[in-house]
Simulated scan of single mutants.
Amino acid sequence: MRVPASEPDRPEPGTGPEPRGPILFAEDGWSWAWIFAAPLFCASAAVFELVAGAPVHWLMLTVCAVASAMCHGVMIAATRVHGRVRLTPTTYIQGTEELQLDRVQEVLPLPGDGIPEASWETARTLGELREVPRRRRSVGLRLDTGAEVRAWTRDPVALHAALEAAVRSVGTGTGTGSGTASDPA
């Protein structure tokens, strides 16, 4: 099924389906293991109260553990949707936005120390977030329309290398297939 160019390709709620073909680069949001952080902290508080001989606040510790786990669950689910990165031989996925690699004209050089800010460093970010999240760095892309956009990741050097190789293989015809996607510019 083809999606009109005015509508972005959106995966199902959650983390979305995995793209077809080999995954050249992948990154997810937070791990679901973090949902146990608050309950473990509350359990350790209960153990501390038992060891100290103080009255244990079972009801309050239980309420705090459950409420915190629920809040963490919402945040984890959001980061697993919006912080998801997948690169296949034909597609780059950032959050819920898909960009076909045949639309990428050039992977721009990474910023260096002492080098003035490049124009792509203030360009629109791919995905639905307005800015690059904390502890993430961006990789600039120039599209076939001339527009520049920012992909982002925890490991910009690895993503840059993977994107360069994938764009080069699509440009030489060794990539497989192409399709339509929303206009990310």
Rank of each mutant, 00 (worst) to 15 (best):
M1T: 00
R2L: 06
R2V: 03
P4F: 13
A5V: 10
E7Y: 14
E7K: 07
P8I: 10
D9M: 01
D9C: 00
R10S: 08
P11A: 11
P11C: 11
P11K: 11
G14P: 00
G16Q: 09
E18C: 08
P19Q: 09
P19K: 04
P19D: 10
P19T: 01
R20N: 06
R20A: 14
R20C: 02
R20I: 04
I23Q: 01
F25L: 05
E27A: 01
E27S: 03
W30S: 06
W30G: 06
W30N: 07
W32K: 13
W34R: 15
I35T: 12
F36D: 07
P39S: 05
F41N: 01
C42P: 00
A43C: 00
S44D: 00
S44W: 00
F48N: 06
E49K: 01
H57T: 07
M60N: 01
M60S: 02
A65I: 06
A67G: 03
A67P: 02
A67H: 02
C71V: 14
M75Q: 07
M75W: 07
M75T: 09
I76N: 11
A77S: 15
R80E: 06
H82C: 08
G83M: 08
G83K: 13
R84G: 12
R84L: 11
V85G: 14
V85D: 13
L87W: 05
T88K: 13
P89T: 10
T90S: 15
T91P: 06
Y92C: 13
I93M: 07
T96V: 14
T96F: 11
E97H: 12
L101D: 01
L101F: 02
D102S: 08
R103G: 07
E106L: 11
P109A: 08
L110E: 03
L110G: 05
G112W: 07
D113R: 08
G114K: 01
E117V: 14
E117H: 05
E121A: 02
R124I: 09
T125I: 03
T125V: 10
G127P: 02
L129C: 11
V132A: 04
R135Q: 11
S138T: 12
V139P: 05
G140P: 05
G140A: 10
L141E: 06
R142H: 10
D144G: 15
E148P: 08
E148L: 13
R150N: 09
A151Y: 07
T153E: 11
T153G: 14
D155T: 14
D155Y: 14
D155Q: 15
V157R: 15
A158K: 15
H160S: 15
A161W: 03
A161C: 05
A161M: 09
L163H: 14
L163A: 09
A166K: 02
A166Q: 05
A166R: 01
R168Q: 01
S169M: 03
S169K: 03
G171I: 02
G173A: 04
G175R: 04
T176P: 04
T176C: 01
S182F: 08
P184L: 07
P184M: 08
